[in-house]
Amino acid sequence: MKSLAELAAIKEKMQNKVVLREGSSDVRVVVGMATCGIAAGARPVLNAFVEAVNGLELNDKVTVTQTGCIGICQYEPVVEIFEAGKEKVTYVKMTPEKAKEVAEKHLKGGNIIAEYTISNV
């Protein structure tokens, strides 16, 4: 059974990393989580991003956050990627599989997957 002692161990392990991480994220992944997004499947998409960002060890560079309705409900789940000094990229009709791919190719590799973006629908 999981115990709070185990959580204390995580704390010990994380404490050093946290100091490094503060303010250092320069890429933001924003998932639309209003009624429209949630109904269209935003929850597993968000989870896929959180897992992939951690799996690819991008935690120091990328933060995954949630927002309300972006205003293009017919294209939900919608994910926006903000990067300092670059134009916003809007991915539409996302799935957990696409999220994983975006994390690998775009967040890690730096290459936008044009066919999943809004300019391609």
Binding site: I10, K11, V18
Partner: peptide
């Protein structure tokens, strides 16, 4: 338990 380690840590 966590102190200053944020709740949203992976």
């Amino acid at each position: 338990v966590l102190g200053d380690v944020p709740l949203d840590t992976f």
